[in-house]
Structures are given as structure tokens and as C-alpha cells.
Design a binder for these strands. Structure first.
Lengths: 212, 212
DNA sequence: CGGCCTTTTGAGTGTGTTCAAATAGGGTGG
DNA sequence: CCACCCTATTTGAACACACTCAAAAGGCCG
């Protein structure tokens, strides 16, 4: 099994000097589509760093509704919890590779890198709140696409790794509304689709105005 | 000016042993209703701990919509940011007292207490996401009331410190919908009102089922 | 008591949902 | 390489819930 250094990059900062590393040894692990990494309530003794692919974190409601709280892309660290038990579950959206490390070595003495990471996660969650609170379907989808495009490397061409259902569960909409909204954004010239998982964003400035 | 020790309690743990303190000296400060503590973009060099009253944190959208991201109750610590600039504004909901401390003494070497606090804030934000994602008005209002009742001391009688507009902006609803929903919950026997800011929760178990 | 602000209630509208069916896309085996 | 099947996505029609605009009722403070 390959052993690698688990580097926790600061998701907020820019420039080389801001990178910080945790001296923790991790083990690479491959995941197939929809493979469960951990469930709600599981013991939270491991943390993960994405290498390739995409993982979704989510919580389930009793009636089966699923709220996806985040998508983890290459470079992202996830799975750090305050409590011993997982508050969210995590699954691979598509084939993925992650580096796994024991959590215990992290919590005892949280350092600068871990701190910055946690605050980055917090910021992401707060942005999500802003996306979900009283915004139209078009605003939600637009901000989702812009965010994803930026995180995937800042290009205006994105290959959606997740299904419409995933997007719907992330944005608090139904799959039909997501689909209709994408069609609408296309009709208005904001996006151009080459296959339903392959989009090109256009008129980024105007699109951004939808999101504030 | 009174000087006090700024104690950051762990919001997640129970029992006396779990309390941890930061050795930071703070200064008490009084606030009147609607008084701005800091605005978005302000320098984020201070942190706060609630002593009495309630403070709201929020973000504004360009069109004037306001998303309240949280209400801070006595004992809560707020205002810790990763970046130098505030990502949220904060105002007193009602007359309030806070302890103010310099942030610089906290970030350099984040310790266990601060870490647990930050993770508590994160958890709160993630719960908020769950409340906002595809839940009915009744579910949102019910979970808000239950959360508030618990944080205010676990009693079933609560004096709402904030206006209907505040609640609406927190839950992503309109003021009219909040009002109608409270009326509905009352008609169904879940709450009993003695004045519009003074509620008594009833049938807590059934009410909780609305929230999962 | 009067004025002002908050909250409630009413009526009509609109956006997103639900249920249903058609279409497109991707993978597999022949 | 193509046909087929299965799933994902799109589209359609009717409905429901929350919103908007408007007015009445309730509280609070001078």
C-alpha cells in the first residue's frame, strides 16, 4: 500500500508561502462510484484528503430526504469532527482516490494548518447557508456552477462529476427544477451544453451578478 | 472599565471537566438595540463573548436581502475569522453586554478551547444548512423554536428576543410566512402564545418529529 | 389617549413541486 | 460496430406552498 504525506493546504490563502503541512502519514485508498466512506454515527477517527475524483458529504432526514453539505474535490481535506461520532456521511460521487490518516494525531495539538483548514470548511458552510436562504432556483444553480468552475481550476469549461440528483440535494431543489433551470440558463445564453455533464460557462460577469 | 477573563466554553461538551479557558483579558461593553458591532469588511481583530442579551450575525446581498447566519446568546463566543476582514456583520438584537478581546492573542497558537469552540460554530452552521435545505416553513420554524428553547436553558417557555423579521431572515422565509406558521403551530396545539414574543412549547416530542 | 411600529390576517399570484411520460445517454453483450 | 437495455435527464401539466401586496389588529411608549 502506498504511503504518502498528508498535506493540508490552506483553502483560503493564495501564494506559496501560505501552504502548511501536517506531519501525518496517510495511506492511499481507491473508491468506486457510490462507495460509502463512512456513515452518520460512525467512529470519527480518520481524516481524508482527496487526491482524485469527488466525494459528497451528506446528512439524511428521517423521511429519506438527503441534504448534501459539500462536494470534496482534489486537494480538499474532509472528515475532521469535534465529536467522536460522525455528524455526516460521505460517499464517492465517482471513482475517487483519497489519502487516509488517523485523526488522533491531529486533534491533540491543533496547529496552524489544521486551524486554517477548519476555518475554510466553516466559511464554505456559511457560503452554503447564503446559497440556500431565500434565493431563486436560478441563483442557486448559477452560484453552484460558478463555485464549481472556480474550484475545478478556474476554467469556464466544466465536466460535472455529479448527477442532477446530487446537485438538487445540495441546492435544496428537486431534480426537475435543476434540469429546468439549466435549460433556462442555456436559453438565456449563460451556459452551453455539450452533453448533459459537460458545460461551458459564458458571460461570467452577468452570471456572477445572479449570485452577489 | 471592567476587565474580565474571557472564558471560552466548549459548546458541545457537558460536565465541568470539559470547560477550558483562554487566558485573555477582555473588556465589557454595553450595546443598545440594533447597535452595529462590526460590518462586513471591517478589520477582524476583536473577538466577543456574550454576557447578556442577543446579537445577530448576518450577510447582506446586493439587492438588500439579509441572511442572518446566527443568533448569539449569553455564553456564546463569536467574531473569530480566518481572514483579516469580517465576512459577516453583527448587531445587537436587543440590549446586550459583551466581553471584547483582541484577536491577535488567539490566532497565533490556537489551543484546545478555541479549537472546540470553532468546531462548535461549524456544527451550528451545518445544522443551519440542514434547516434551510428543502424544508417546509413549519419544519423551519419548529426547529428554530426548539433550538432556541434548548439554548435558552432547556425550558419549554421562551421569551423571543428577536422580531419576526429577524426570524424570517434567519430561516429564509418572509415575515408573513413566519407569522402564519406560528399561528398554524398554535392552532395545532404545538405552541401557546402569551403575547407575540412569549411562547410556550407543548408536545415537544411531536414537535421534534417535525425537525428530525 | 394618540401615534408609531410590529404583527396578524386576507386575497391573489408565482415559483417550485409533484406526478407522469418522453427522450437522451452510456454501458454491455452479441 | 451495432442493438439493446437501463438509467439519467428532460419535458409537460396540474397543484401546492410560500410570496407579494394590502389592510386590519395589536402593543408599546410618549
Amino acid at each position: 500500500m502506498p504511503v504518502q504525506r498528508l498535506a493540508i493546504d490552506n483553502p483560503e490563502s493564495t501564494g506559496a508561502g501560505a501552504r502548511a503541512e501536517l506531519n501525518v502519514i496517510g495511506i492511499a485508498r481507491g473508491l468506486v462510484r457510490d462507495q460509502l466512506l463512512f456513515a452518520e454515527g460512525d467512529s470519527a477517527d480518520l481524516v481524508y484528503k482527496m487526491v482524485t475524483g469527488v466525494v459528497r458529504s451528506y446528512r439524511l432526514l428521517a423521511d429519506g430526504r438527503r441534504q448534501i453539505t459539500g462536494f470534496h474535490l482534489p486537494g480538499d481535506v474532509f472528515g475532521i469532527e469535534l465529536r467522536h461520532a460522525r455528524s455526516e456521511a460521505a460517499e464517492a460521487v465517482a471513482e475517487a482516490t483519497v489519502i487516509v490518516a488517523r485523526r488522533s494525531s491531529l486533534t491533540a495539538e491543533p496547529d496552524e494548518a489544521l486551524w486554517r483548514h477548519a476555518m475554510g470548511v466553516l466559511r464554505r458552510s456559511q457560503d452554503h447557508v447564503l446559497t440556500l436562504g431565500r434565493r431563486s432556483a436560478a441563483e442557486r444553480v448559477a452560484s453552484f456552477l460558478l463555485d464549481l468552475a472556480q474550484r475545478l481550476g478556474g476554467r469556464d469549461e466544466i465536466a460535472l462529476p455529479m448527477s442532477r440528483q446530487d446537485i438538487a440535494d445540495y441546492l435544496g431543489l428537486t431534480i426537475e427544477t435543476v434540469s429546468r433551470t439549466l435549460t433556462l440558463l442555456q436559453a438565456r445564453g449563460f451556459i452551453r451544453a455539450r452533453g448533459c455533464r459537460h458545460l461551458r460557462l459564458q458571460r461570467l460577469a452577468t452570471l456572477s451578478e445572479l449570485c452577489e
